[in-house]
Design a protein around this nucleic acid. Structure first.
Lengths: 190, 190
DNA sequence: CTTTGACCAATTTAGTTTTTTGGTCATTTT
DNA sequence: AAAATGACCAAAAAACTAAATTGGTCAAAG
């Protein structure tokens, strides 16, 4: 039963990134936590950033699995887009690694972290766009620029959930759902 | 012909803030540029931040004057809101002081600057809300939550004009106008 | 062939000194 | 007397330095 070193490394790194952030996580620490020599890490990953990438990639997959889990085929597409997006942003604001990374970007502006968060955003938009394209081909919503719409939907959700609350009473899930419908049921330029 | 010292101070400070940003502008420099003893500044302004506030307040007034200048009473409200907002964001992205402040916030995170930019945003939203309230009372657009709508409109504009361009071809003014119409002509929850 | 940790250049941090800064106020100018 | 000034000060920031840490390598061990 040779231990799966790669897996141990990824688990150790995930834990450390979640706890201390990207910058404050040292490769020595990851090696120690993973019960592995430091050099071993470099047989699986070219460098620290690539290890980080693998972890974020897993996180994005989890995120999308979460979204898929709340989507119900019987419901209208507008409701499902809302549920999925809402779940993704909930995930984003509850998941320890995400919390830590967002915090690190805000207060230290670590470059690798900014790039990774941007990448996550792009993945969410791509996922959303895919859903919209399918819905259009099925005739559930009018044809539109799905790239632009996905982009706007995500930006709006982020603004409504994270920025609006800084000055106002939080919006109910229903209110947010209504706002989104305005977008999906009207034709946007394409 | 006693020189208007207050005015000279404000002009010198505006120039210096625009050129070097808030932090890098020293009160000594402002005094020198204004041909005034340093103590004189403090007979007009309680401190550096209050001087900054006065300048930003003037800038907001200019901004709104710019918006008013492109608004034409004959046009539909949706067109006018688009014109005004577009002009405001154009101003924001062209005006030297604004450019410098946005840059300073991004790369140094100066607290006083963040607060001031937030304040500017709030003023724009308040201006917009006022326009929408008037339009509703005249029956030009359906009744809606104007605070929320103004907030969303501004956030969307910023996303479309500044964020979208990072990955995509810039949108035409017409495209942006269309997106905005979707918002103004449909009832949002209130 | 895989794994390792001592090793190294390069970067970061911590500790210290020096300089600069916002703001005051006794003195000067008008 | 009222307004304006700039030398002055405590506090904050910048510059400098020494010390410690880091990501990554590689010869040796397993």
């Amino acid at each position: 039963m040779a231990p799966d070193r790669r897996k141990m490394i990824v688990e150790a790194a995930t834990k450390s990134f979640s706890l201390f952030g990207y910058k404050a996580t040292t490769m020595d620490q990851v090696a120690r936590l993973a019960n592995v020599g430091k050099g071993t890490i470099y047989t699986f990953f070219k460098n620290k950033e690539e290890l980080f990438e693998e972890i974020i990639s897993t996180l994005v997959k989890e995120m999308i699995a979460e979204a898929e889990a709340v989507i119900q085929p019987g419901l209208p597409i507008t409701e499902n887009v809302h549920r999925g997006l809402f779940r993704i942003l909930e995930f984003r604001s509850k998941h320890q690694l995400m919390i830590k990374l967002v915090q690190e970007e805000a207060e230290m502006g670590t470059l690798a972290v900014s790039e990774m968060l941007r990448h996550v955003e792009d993945e969410i938009i791509a996922y959303l766009k895919n859903k919209l394209d399918t819905a259009i081909s099925k005739g559930s919503i009018p044809s539109m620029d799905t790239e632009l719409t996905s982009f706007l939907l995500l930006k709006m959700y982020i603004a409504l959930i994270f920025d609006w609350e800084k000055n106002h009473e939080p919006l109910s899930s229903d209110q947010i759902a209504q706002i989104m419908k305005v977008f999906l049921l009207r034709k946007l330029p394409n």
